[in-house]
Each structure stands twice: as C-alpha cells, then as structure tokens.
Simulated assay, not measured.
Amino acid sequence: MNPIKAQSTGSPKKFNVFAHVKYEHLVAGVSGGVVSTLILHPLDLIKIRFAVNDGRTATVPQYRGLSSAFTTIFRQEGFRGLYKGVTPNVWGSGSSWGLYFMFYNTIKTFIQGGNTTMPLGPTMNMLAAAESGILTLLLTNPIWVVKTRLCLQCDAASSAEYRGMIHALGQIYKEEGIRGLYRGFVPGMLGVSHGAIQFMTYEELKNAYNEYRKLPIDTKLATTEYLAFAAVSKLIAAAATYPYQVVRARLQDHHHRYNGTWDCIKQTWRFEGYRGFYKGLKASLTRVVPACMVTFLVYENVSHFLLARRKRIETKEDASDV
C-alpha cells in the first residue's frame, strides 16, 4: 500500500500503546532487580525491622544500630536469618523493576510517538513514572506483604507461622482475605511519588548530560555516569518520601494492628514524634542507594544489548525481504 495514499485518506490514528511494548525492558528490569536483591537483602531485612520498631511491641527485637542489628541477627538466627524473606523479595523486586521499566518505557515511547530521541520534560516523565508505579503496585503488593511478614519472623516461635512464600500467601488470604494481601496499599500508592521523583530525576539528568554533549538523549552512557545519576536520583527520592515506607511496613506487620493508614500516622506521631517516620532511614539509604545503582546499571546494559540485538535482527529481515 502506498503510504502517501494511506495518509491522504485521513483515517483516524488508532490508540495502540501496546505497539510500543518491548520485552527487552522487562527482562533487563528483572535482571537488575534480582541481582541487587541477592546482594543487598540483609540490609533490607534490617531496614524493615527498624521501621516497625515502635518501642511498644515486645515481639519486635531491639537493635542499637546497623552493625548491632547485623551481628545480633547473625548470632541469634545464623546466616539464613539475614536472608529471611529473600524469596518474595527476589520475586517482588525482580517483577516490580521488570514491570516498572516495561510500563514506563511503553508509556514514554507512546507519548513520544515512537521517537525515543525526543525529550519529554520533567512533568511528562513524572506522569509516565507515576502511571507505571500504580500499575506495578496493583500487581505486586501481595508479594511485598509476604516479604515484610517473613522478614519479621524473628524467633523460633514465630518462624513456624509462615513456612515460605507460597504458604504465607495462602495463610494471609485464608485468615485476612484479599484485604490482608493488600495491606499497606494506600501508603504504597502515596509511594508512587517516590518512583515518579526518582525516574524523573534520573531521566532529566541523563537527558541534560547528553544534550550538553550534543548527543541524542538515548545515547548509551559510561558505567560511572549511570551509577552517579542513579545514586543522585535515589537520594533525592528517598529523602522526600521515606515516611510512607515506615507507615507501609507497620501496616503490613502482623505483630501490631492499626485501624488504617491515618491511625498508624497518628500513633507514630503521638508516641515517637517526627523521628518515628524516619526510623531505619540510615539502613534504608545504605541499602537502596547501592541497590538502585546496581539495578540501573544492570538494566541499562542489558536493555541496550537486547535492543541492539533486536535492531540487528530486524535489519537483517528487512534486507532479506529486499
């Protein structure tokens, strides 16, 4: 069909966001999430235990600091204790990063009309990231509930409560229903702003750097540049949105019950003040900044490799058709 003739017919442009879906972003995101999780899971476990420690729940262990928590867990629970909850964390982190990157790049490319060299600007980047975060959270929240519960099994008595990821999913659904699997969903929705701020900052830093070098914005960067931009974007996002993570972890904790998100916020403020909303921040930053750097570095390299491979295959197919 003659493309010029097709355009002249004035047929309406179809809304087809799925035309921009590329599995390469999913695979690269999963790869980054899994690698960073396997390396840094112990810090995530410690962060969760700090976050839910309200000073009033006897079943939650007390730690004096990051190094104290690490040595205490290792001494009392062994090496396996440092990796409690690692299975749902690998599933959750891998699937979350994979879905997030896929949704984000699909939405972004759709907005760009397929032209990946066109900058979107901060507002549209943040919008694409927020939409991606909502879709990802809807699919992965139950996994994060299970991860939190498994990370908080701190002693021999509680360790029999959940025998693993599948058992925990079944038990939570049996005892608490769908609502149990979606505990922390409301603050999780607020946490979409975290990903939106992070991705917007990361994309704008990359774009500005490539524009400064007078190169297309999708030009591949050096390892140190990816690491630096990932670290800066994560620090900015974490500083702005950390309190929601504390509220979310406490709502998902089965040792203490709150009557919803607002009740959790009120009790935390009443008994602990503003410091309560930043418990575990040091452990969190110690984990999430290097985790983000590893995740983005793996993602960028894997995605560029896979997309270049796709392009080579498509070029060969076009040449053979000719």
Results as ranks from 00 to 15, higher is better:
residue 118 M to R: 12
residue 150 L to D: 06
residue 166 I to R: 09
residue 4 I to G: 15
residue 128 A to V: 01
residue 31 S to H: 08
residue 37 T to V: 07
residue 129 A to Y: 02
residue 6 A to W: 07
residue 120 L to A: 02
residue 27 V to E: 07
residue 170 G to N: 09
residue 68 S to I: 08
residue 10 G to P: 03
residue 180 G to W: 00
residue 125 N to H: 06
residue 107 I to F: 08
residue 185 F to R: 05
residue 129 A to N: 03
residue 198 Q to T: 13
residue 127 L to C: 11
residue 69 A to E: 07
residue 252 Q to A: 02
residue 181 L to Y: 05
residue 288 V to D: 14
residue 165 M to L: 03
residue 154 C to K: 11
residue 133 G to E: 10
residue 130 A to P: 12
residue 253 D to G: 05
residue 61 P to E: 05
residue 199 F to C: 11
residue 54 D to Y: 04
residue 58 A to S: 12
residue 217 I to L: 00
residue 166 I to F: 09
residue 94 G to P: 03
residue 111 I to R: 03
residue 265 I to F: 03
residue 156 A to H: 12
residue 205 L to G: 06
residue 227 L to T: 14
residue 64 R to N: 15
residue 33 G to D: 08
residue 125 N to C: 02
residue 246 V to N: 05
residue 271 F to Y: 11
residue 24 E to R: 03
residue 202 Y to P: 13
residue 222 A to D: 14
residue 301 N to L: 09
residue 67 S to L: 07
residue 300 E to H: 10
residue 224 T to D: 15
residue 110 F to E: 04
residue 102 M to F: 01
residue 320 S to D: 13
residue 41 H to M: 05
residue 7 Q to P: 15
residue 5 K to N: 15
residue 274 Y to V: 13
residue 221 L to K: 07
residue 265 I to D: 09
residue 134 I to S: 10
residue 305 F to E: 14
residue 46 I to N: 11
residue 31 S to L: 00
residue 218 D to I: 01
residue 160 A to P: 13
residue 161 E to K: 08
residue 216 P to S: 03
residue 157 A to E: 11
residue 215 L to G: 10
residue 261 T to M: 04
residue 173 Y to C: 11
residue 163 R to S: 13
residue 80 R to P: 15
residue 118 M to T: 14
residue 264 C to V: 01
residue 254 H to V: 12
residue 135 L to Q: 07
residue 252 Q to E: 06
residue 171 Q to M: 14
residue 60 V to G: 09
residue 34 V to A: 06
residue 112 Q to A: 02
residue 222 A to N: 15
residue 66 L to Q: 08
residue 202 Y to C: 09
residue 169 L to Y: 05
residue 11 S to D: 14
residue 263 D to Y: 05
residue 9 T to R: 14
residue 291 A to N: 06
residue 243 P to N: 02
residue 298 V to A: 04
residue 226 Y to I: 03
residue 222 A to I: 09
residue 116 T to S: 10
residue 61 P to G: 07
residue 261 T to D: 10
residue 226 Y to D: 08
residue 321 D to N: 15
residue 45 L to A: 11
residue 321 D to I: 13
residue 99 L to Q: 06
residue 102 M to K: 01
residue 204 E to H: 04
residue 42 P to M: 00
residue 207 N to D: 14
residue 270 R to F: 13
residue 237 A to D: 06
residue 51 A to F: 10
residue 66 L to C: 06
residue 280 G to M: 01
residue 159 S to N: 13
residue 185 F to K: 05
residue 278 Y to I: 04
residue 105 N to C: 05
residue 3 P to Y: 00
residue 5 K to L: 09
residue 276 G to L: 00
residue 134 I to K: 08
residue 56 R to V: 12
residue 163 R to Y: 14
residue 163 R to D: 15
residue 177 G to A: 01
residue 314 E to S: 12
residue 62 Q to C: 13
residue 89 N to D: 14
residue 151 C to V: 06
residue 72 T to D: 11
residue 164 G to E: 03
residue 83 Y to K: 07
residue 54 D to C: 03
residue 35 V to F: 02
